[in-house]
């Protein structure tokens, strides 16, 4: 292209670009002016895990199986718990998550056998210290006591019924043996139960 021709075509390409930018002047602004406007978090948004309050129990259902602690790749979950006096179900007594280490992989949620973990929507956290350890059982303190009392009652009732049934079965067995022995006193065979 000639010297003048290339100058003109170059200049035209610059004008073209300016025209595109100018057209954007009139359009709606796409910037989200945070913190005056908060973004809408998606339903699946991943943040710190939390225990779900299951409706049928009125509290969480963590049985301290330690599956999530074992599978966490960042070793950020620490659980303590075990058998509770008077109850059949194990319960967790401490569930600490060091959120500074969490990589939001979701393996703990996938592996939980009682499906009691979910992502929370913890969004803007700012602080003055590096400590970012959460105890997930904090919101459940009072609920936990209620649940344990109720569960102890239920377990005690179930145990009592079981004991009664067992006693009845033993009695029936004893009566059956006695009846069989009466029917055939000379038969030296084994008594069928």
């Amino acid at each position: 292209m000639s010297y003048v021709g290339s100058i003109l075509s170059g200049f035209w390409s610059l004008l073209n670009g300016l025209g595109i930018t100018a057209r954007h002047f009139g359009r709606k602004n796409v910037t989200l002016t945070y913190p005056h406007e908060k973004p809408e978090l998606s339903g699946e948004f991943r943040s710190l895990i939390s225990l779900i309050q299951l409706p049928e129990l009125g509290t969480h259902d963590c049985v301290a199986c330690l599956q999530c602690e074992k599978i966490c790749p960042s070793y950020c979950i620490k659980i303590e718990g075990g058998k509770v006096e008077g109850m059949k179900r194990k319960r967790a007594s401490k569930f600490e998550v060091d959120f500074a280490l969490c990589s939001l992989c979701g393996l703990c949620i996938d592996v939980c056998p009682t499906d009691t973990l979910e992502y929370s929507k913890l969004y803007d956290e700012a602080g003055y210290e590096r400590e970012w350890v959460f105890d997930l059982l904090d919101p459940f303190e009072s609920l936990e006591e209620e649940f344990r009392e109720k569960q102890r009652e239920v377990d005690a009732k179930v145990a009592a019924e079981k004991a009664k049934k067992k006693a009845a079965a033993l009695q029936a067995k004893a009566e059956a043996e006695a009846a069989a022995a009466q029917d055939s006193p000379t038969s030296g065979g084994e008594v069928q139960s």
Binding site: V30, L104, G106, D110
Partner: peptide, 30 residues
């Protein structure tokens, strides 16, 4: 601006915008 659309779409399905752990052995999570 275009990229925000994609990140929003992927955020909606997987929960993360940039570093996803969306795959599992044998499928995807959601």
């Amino acid at each position: 601006d275009d990229r925000e659309e994609i990140l929003g779409i992927l955020d909606r399905v997987s929960g993360s915008r940039l570093t996803y752990s969306y795959g599992r052995f044998g499928g995807v999570t959601a």
